[in-house]
Amino acid sequence: MTLPVFAFHEPGQALLLGTALLLGLGFGFCLERAGFGSARRLVAVFYLYDMAVVKVMFTAIVTAMTGLTLLAAIGLLDLSSIYVEPTRLPAQALGGLIFGAGFIVGGYCPGTAVAALATGRRDGVAFALGMLAGVASYAELAPGLDAWVSDGGAEQTLTGTTGVHRLWWTLLFIVVLALVARLLAWLERRFAANRPAA
């Protein structure tokens, strides 16, 4: 096994941060190319006339998932060396609900806000400032809540929980993606009238 690279060859700080910068370059390029520097394009998914958000996210997840599964299957990649945020269901369910409210009210998520502000969107700047105020106020006001969130979580994957091999889950996700693609096309036709004129 030789991957992930940094698990077997510890990088110096310059290499580490340089890698982050380069990966970020690709990250931001893809986000903007998909139209995710635009709040109206992003929230269109919630009015069902443009499902690009689901298409992009789902395709990205399945692409990375397939790559990870194949690299692990041929013995090149050590999956256990990859960091996964611990699962703590009440925290992730509650956090997801609050986050979803922020998404539809604000029009962005933390990453897409950066794509927006870098391309001139004032509302992207406002969202990013709200994020800064949010993480700062969370740190000052909610250490108790944060301790609750951090308490008792452990890495938990579908593979470990169900005992079904990663290969089967990956195949299932690919099949679901193909079915979802048809559903999305139907939704976009059905709700085309929601598209704003300008």
Partner: peptide, 29 residues
């Protein structure tokens, strides 16, 4: 919205990138 999203992401220990994209690809529950 940014303020709300920040609290949500801190509670969930991640956002659309860290939890949904990266977690999803790793089949994280």
């Amino acid at each position: 919205g940014g303020l709300l999203a920040a609290w949500g992401a801190r509670l969930a220990r991640g956002c659309t990138s860290g939890q949904a994209l990266a977690g999803g690809a790793m089949l994280s529950v």
